[in-house]
Nucleic acid binder design. Structure first.
Lengths: 160, 160
DNA sequence: AGTAAAAGTTAGGCTAGTCTAACAAAAGTC
DNA sequence: GACTTTTGTTAGACTAGCCTAACTTTTACT
């Protein structure tokens, strides 16, 4: 993986970061619930992350990210968000499905791809005409298998 | 994974399918080279795929996909191609990097996402004006951090 | 045909990550 | 303060996938 961590460890870091946003203390049980793994798996993972200097965790205590751990976690969170927006807002994939897919994909995109995707999402969604014509056009195309002729005509007109 | 196979097994199936396109016989050594793993790993994988009814492989012989194996392999190949085109032709990611990324991502996209992405790529790249204005606009935006005012002006004009 | 090289297999070991079962510590309650 | 529940840990087993080393089969060459 790009961060030097496995997909699984990235998931743990991400979970810790996200839980930390809404709770004062991050605990093994919460991580376990969020990731759908058993507590011994969390224990083992924290051990490893602790060895790698990415989390602070004394026995039976709560969990905190180190600076380095936070850096990686935020990177993963960022990937997730960009992928989620791309899938749900641009492709129009169901939000639940987008979440699940983003959770998987986030581990595998190179940084150069994520950089470009980030800008692409921004570019499309901040279209100066407001609700992007492009996305309307795509929705129509996806649903009907062909372009909305009216939209196309308007577009071609613009060419003079 | 969506196909019922692991990422690794999907890679083997894909490799067998792609090698089959250019050679009369697919052999362990070729698979091994293509995937960058040692031959015993290929042997083990073929064993498993054979048990699952996805390949035909008698000892010391060559490898063939069953109908079901071919179905899965083609699915993976399709994902790869769509992702590759999206990354390289739409996002403008370096082609080498796009290949590598597509190889990873191909295992994780849900079928509903891939369906929409497929259409999206088609929609963007078959823009009726020829070389899509959108991609020019994005390239400019990516390189300069802001929109090409001239293009935007032309776009807004169209609104009347 | 006989031997050397190449191709493929088997055996066994390693890592990463998961699980269950059993135990230990902390927190909550009477 | 003792007992119970919740939380967390340790130990040990399992799967998937990779590797190296040693062996076997096939192929190629003389």
């Amino acid at each position: 993986m790009i961060t030097g961590q496995t997909a699984s460890m990235e998931d743990y870091l991400e979970a810790i970061a996200k839980l930390g946003e809404v709770e004062t203390e991050v605990r093994v049980t919460e991580i376990s619930k969020r990731l759908g793994v058993k507590k011994p798996s969390v224990s083992a993972a924290l051990h490893k992350l602790s060895e790698d200097g990415l989390v602070e965790h004394r026995k039976y205590g709560c969990v905190e990210l180190t600076d380095e751990g936070r850096r990686i976690a935020e990177d993963v969170v960022h990937r997730h968000e960009v992928l989620f927006r791309f899938l749900s807002e641009i492709l129009g994939v169901d939000r639940e499905v987008s979440q699940v897919d983003a959770c998987k994909l986030e581990h595998w995109l190179s940084s150069s791809s994520i950089k470009r995707l980030t800008k692409f999402v921004e570019f499309i969604l901040t279209c100066p005409r407001g609700e992007p014509v492009l996305l309307q056009g795509f929705d129509y195309y996806f649903d009907h298998g062909e372009r909305d002729e009216e939209l196309v005509a308007r577009c071609l007109e613009e060419e003079r």
